[in-house]
């Protein structure tokens, strides 16, 4: 048994400290918002210039001037603030964001992140705010499947895809296990279903430490 995407999102939401300022990357990380407890006072940042972003609006309340980083319509919560793009990225680069949650093609044991470009000759590269987030947020969480569609591990000794950031990832959430990337190495934080750390050690070309 492995975790569904919604269960992974709930797990990430559980681990975000109360009162944090958080940026959720486009795609799967956006789902984390659905699992945040309103009482914990987590404030969502969106790179296009807003703090305390709210959920998607009802169909008749869509405002084209109010979108998230994925250009989807959102709402504002009480206490929201708007600012321009230079200020939005100064917040990231300046170390003011507590947590960002990003997707990934690959993460290395040393915390290198690859999530912006496959490097394929016909691919159109797009980086957006990924490098700024990976570099600037105090904690960088990754949500990804542990294996690519071809079965190859995505938690690797060295990334083969072009890097987004060097040594920036702190924790990796996957459908079978959560890993902490520490100066002492990759630590298996928890496993799910029937997955054992021994199975993970066999499947990954990495030394793993148990918590």
């Amino acid at each position: 048994m492995t975790l569904s995407k919604a269960e992974m999102a709930a797990l990430v939401a559980r681990d975000i400290p109360a009162g944090s300022f958080v940026n959720l990357g486009i795609g799967q990380p956006t789902m984390v918002a659905d699992h945040l407890d309103a009482g914990h006072g987590v404030v969502l940042h969106t790179e296009n210039g807003m703090l305390n972003m709210g959920p998607a609006p009802a169909a008749d309340e869509v405002d084209p001037d109010l979108t998230n980083a994925g250009k989807q319509p959102v709402t504002e919560l009480a206490g929201a603030a708007y600012f321009d793009s230079a200020a939005s990225f100064a917040m990231m680069r300046g170390g003011h964001l507590d947590v960002c949650v990003l997707g990934a093609f690959q993460v290395s044991a040393g915390g290198d992140l690859a999530n912006w470009h496959t490097g394929a000759p016909d691919a159109i590269p797009a980086v957006g705010g990924a490098m700024d987030l990976a570099t600037g947020a105090k904690s960088v969480f990754v949500m990804m499947t542990l294996f690519a569609k071809d079965g190859s591990p995505k938690l690797v000794p060295t990334c083969t895809y072009p890097l987004t950031g060097v040594g920036c990832v702190d924790r990796v959430y996957t459908e079978v296990a959560v890993f902490d990337l520490t100066p002492e190495g990759v630590v298996v934080r928890e496993t799910f279903g029937t997955t054992t750390p021994e199975q993970l050690a066999d499947a990954l070309d990495l030394p793993l430490r148990l918590r």
Partner: peptide, 24 residues
């Protein structure tokens, strides 16, 4: 990178001849 794009224009508008960024 998006933050570098914004900051490069901010620098131009503020008379700054360039800047050192950790991004990238």
């Amino acid at each position: 990178p998006q933050g570098t794009l914004a900051e490069r224009m901010r620098a131009a508008g503020a008379g700054i001849g360039g800047f050192f960024s950790p991004t990238g």
